[in-house]
Simulated scan of single mutants.
Amino acid sequence: MSTITSTALQTSYPPILPKSFNGNQPKTIRLYPLSNYTFGTKETQPEEDPSVLARLKRLEEHYVAHGMRRTCEGILVCHEHNHPHILMLQIANAFFKLPGDYLHAEDDEIEGFKIRLNERLAPVGTQFSGEGVNEEWEIGDTLAQWWRPNFETFMYPFIPAHVTRPKECKKLYFIQLPRRKVLSVPKNMKLLAVPLFELYDNTARYGPQLSAIPHLLSRYNFEFVDENGQVVAVTPGGGPDGDYVPKTKVLAGGDEEMKEDGIKDENGIQ
């Protein structure tokens, strides 16, 4: 019975060195605590359309004049007790949406998007001063594209095979929040901080676009920083502090009490 020696397993090919453990790994994003940010209110910004039908009619008019409409919305992330929270608007105690809006036909996408973010969230006048008031928006990765095939409320994360001329493309961008920032929301809206676990698989309340945000953010690792700038937790390896259970917080605007009845998703579907 022959014995295989170590010399029989040798090869003339050089060894293949393994890739670094950091190779092809998620980007690490630094998140600052919710307490680092200042929130206020500003003048009411009424909705442009009194109904869903009116909104779709305006979309059709835009398409005839300019072609496909472009919409940009921002995913702004901070943390509360080392759990990521998304800053989100609520309108009329019913509709949830991300900050942003459709772009004018002549707008450059990024610059036009910054203008829309300022319209929604930038402070006005001399209400606030100091660090974070005039902080520039840092537009990060495009995390998703949603397509509106027809003049209907439904949007999809793909273009259906039979559609060659979609009517709208909505892009969701990651917004890297700075260490400090002042945000002001129109009085007729609420600015909420919604924890990721509340959004996950919750299409009944938030609709398909918003409930998909935890999936979109899973491409990143997070580094959680306290008010003093010290890293207190990282992904993986650190969760919420103690027995704290993250929950949605009303940061500014609207009524003080959240109404649970009649909640609809971003497409107005009960």
Results as ranks from 00 to 15, higher is better:
His162Gly: 05
Leu191Asn: 01
Ile263Gln: 08
Glu168Val: 15
Val182Leu: 06
Arg179Asn: 06
Glu60Thr: 00
Val250Trp: 13
Ala252Tyr: 03
Ile159Leu: 15
Glu119Cys: 04
Phe222Tyr: 14
Arg148His: 08
Glu152Thr: 14
Pro18Lys: 06
Ala144Met: 07
Thr203Lys: 09
Glu135Pro: 04
Thr248Asn: 00
Asn228Arg: 06
Ala65Cys: 10
Phe154Pro: 01
Leu76Lys: 01
Ala212Ser: 13
Ser218Tyr: 10
Lys114Asn: 08
Pro123Ser: 02
Lys114Cys: 07
Thr142His: 04
Ser6Asp: 15
Asp141Gln: 09
Thr7Asp: 13
Leu191Ala: 02
Pro246Ala: 13
Ala105Glu: 07
Asp226Val: 08
Gly130Lys: 11
Asp49Cys: 09
Gly262Ala: 09
Glu61Ile: 00
Ile269Thr: 13
Glu168Asn: 10
Pro208Met: 02
Pro14Leu: 10
Glu227Gln: 12
Asp261Pro: 00
Ser35Glu: 10
Pro46Ser: 05
Thr3Gly: 02
Leu59Glu: 03
Thr248Leu: 03
Thr126Glu: 06
Glu43Val: 03
Gly125Lys: 05
Ser35Arg: 07
Val185Ser: 05
Leu34Ala: 08
Arg58Met: 10
Glu198Thr: 10
Glu138Lys: 15
Arg180Ile: 00
Gly23Ser: 13
Pro178Tyr: 03
Asp261Arg: 05
Phe197Trp: 06
Ala204Met: 08
Ala144Ile: 04
Ser12Glu: 14
Phe158Trp: 14
Leu103Ala: 01
Lys264Ser: 09
Asn22Ile: 15
Ala193Asn: 03
Met1Pro: 04
Pro15Ser: 14
Tyr32Asn: 13
Asn118Lys: 07
Gly130Asn: 08
Leu89Ile: 14
